[in-house]
Nucleic acid binder design. Sequence first.
DNA 1: GTAGGGTTAG
Length: 559
Amino acid sequence: MKRQQPQWNTLLRELANKSLFPDALQVYLQMLRSGSAPNAFTFPFALKSCAALSLPFTGKQLHCHVLKTGCSPEPFLLTSLISMYCRLGSVESARQVFDENRHSSKLTVCYNALVSGYALNSRAKDAVLLFRQMREFGVAINGVTILGLVPVCGVPGSLELGMAVHGCCVKLGLDVETAVGNCLLTMYAKCGEIGCARKWFDEMPRKGLITWNAMINGYAQNGLANEVIQLYMQMEASGFRPDPVTLVGVLSSCANLGAHTFGKEVERRIEACGFGYNPFLSNALINMYARCGNLKKARDIFNGMPVKSVVSWTAIIGGYGMHGQGKTAVELFDDMIRSGIRPDGAAFVSVLSACSHAGLTDSGLNYFEVMQKQYGLQPGPEHYSCVVDLLGRAGRLYEAQKLIESMQVKPDGAVWGALLGACRIHRNLELAELAFERVIELEPTNIGYYVLLSNLYTDTGNKEGIINVRMMMRERKLRKDPGCSYVEFKGAFFTMSRMKREEEAKSWGCLTEFQKIRPSVVSFIIPILLHQRKGKLKEKPYGIDFRGFHEMRSCETSK
DNA sequence: GTAGGGTTAG
């Protein structure tokens, strides 16, 4: 049956809108073969498919088709062309299309496509310049302009620009659009200004699911896991049903806290909602179980995934590595390569750290070489710190030092810190002092390093050294931060610094009371008492149901 | 019938 031209267009549009891009391009080719001429309603979808599939050559050809068919350069078509070139990384070609059609490009849509294109290609300056031009030329600015522009402000240090854009939104009355609000929220979170993000979140007149997700994931990315859990509970209480995006953020926070019970609860939720086959969620679950120490469960989920991405592999490899099962981690890494997955930088971090934890020095060094020579990956400071750790633990301290000195990128605190840690193990005071000097330049307030050096002085009986470190800490007004406890109790969640806990315990006058029961339980009970005092549970502190304690897990971490 | 956009894992 021969199709008419409009039918071809409809089919093409439907496929592209369902993200079935290869099929859409097939249809385009069939259409040409059947003798139907493409028109201005055909090209936008063919161009979009090309961009989605990263086919620069086909994209260029399509542009030629457009010119050949003599389609009038109307804004819809121009916008599609500009957007395609931007997505394929050729901003210059996009700019050319834009400039060659000056008369039509007065239109907002064309500007929007190019502004977001510059942003997409990390050309912040050009994006802002074009945005300014829009204002000068009196081109209408709408919400979509802002959505395209704001991502350029979402990097640490660009808060000022972001706030200027926010101010602009307010002036134009665009900040009340939910999508714009969400975008600004994400921008603040990505700048690391989580306080601003929260303030804006609280002010936003209309919050949608995406708003909650943006705030939850903003907290998650800034490492504020407790806030994530709290906000998630608040979200449920406000009647919003989570979607996979929400739960990914929540799970990553469970992983960071070692909140096993809560994580299991989230898994049940995932199953109940029918999100079970979402690969993002499976990866987040693997990560959560692995970091909580439940390697079996992590492995089961990993094995059950029909399609495993490099992220899935990295999560399971990292899990084994973290718990000292370096051999399994290395085997899995090799399996991954055999299965045709190309490892990326993060995958190498997981295998390198597995090797260093398990003492597999030679394998680790081999992977470090393979990474550069075979995969052409430039090692970052995170790789160097693994390798320094690897060499250092093996006692090859001077090789580690040489490696640091040969680095192409600037070493960060973790790199020198790894050397310092190794020096402590092998009691090399001279090198430790050098590493300490470097690491303190980079992270002057990280108390861990002072403690490490002080411990080494203690090990070697160097009293003068100990006093020196203490003086330095006093001069810089550094105090050893007390460790923090994370506690789960019947699905509720608590955190509290040890010092605070003791103060609170004294004010309750019940510390000794509980110590009689079981000293290790004290750290669990005090936060619960606090919770009861603040919250709705009006029980007396002594009326806690101790049968619930088997449900608790805790992990002590120190900052 | 067409274009530009916001939240997601290791």
